[in-house]
Design a binder for these strands. Sequence first.
DNA 1: CCATAATGTCAAGCGTCCTTTGCACGTTTG
DNA 2: CAAACGTGCAAAGGACGCTTGACATTATGG
Lengths: 79, 79
Amino acid sequence: MVCHAGSGRTDCALESMKNRLKVLRAERDWSQQDLADALGVSRQSVNAIETGKYDPSLPLAFRIADVFDLAIEAIFLRD
Amino acid sequence: MVCHAGSGRTDCALESMKNRLKVLRAERDWSQQDLADALGVSRQSVNAIETGKYDPSLPLAFRIADVFDLAIEAIFLRD
DNA sequence: CCATAATGTCAAGCGTCCTTTGCACGTTTG
DNA sequence: CAAACGTGCAAAGGACGCTTGACATTATGG
């Protein structure tokens, strides 16, 4: 009974997407804290997303896209 | 401190985005169940997203974009 | 009249997202 | 050295995402 039982998905526990946050942050010379402040979330959230612990919610993904002035598809990539 | 304290957002409990699922579904004459099957989620999930109860996760948003062959930004809109 | 399809909703349960606090480690700055 | 910064990680708690199961409503067709 891994994952949420009954799920139709097979890639349990690893459906996270890749993202280019670390690179985009580096290009702007921003710390995780800087980005967190710009997004209105905690530094730990930024760190967790960058290190692949989980994906952002859709509203947060939109805010990230806004901050970097990029499309969501240009930041988050299907594995 | 309702909601997640410290959040920069003011619309606590209503940060959901608009979406065009119902229209896109109608254009293809798909039932909620048809879409749910295509996405690999339950019909209730599709219904909840359509009726604005909550937003999909980012991976699910990508699958929705894939199913309709559209960009996420063309389906989900900032309020 | 009865059967079926489509939609909407409620409840319980579990995993994810995001919070706070706190600690560890390496690097940089004074 | 010491103080601060940047990053990573952990635990606990609350809100959200998604599940199953069940029930109600409306519409269509036999």
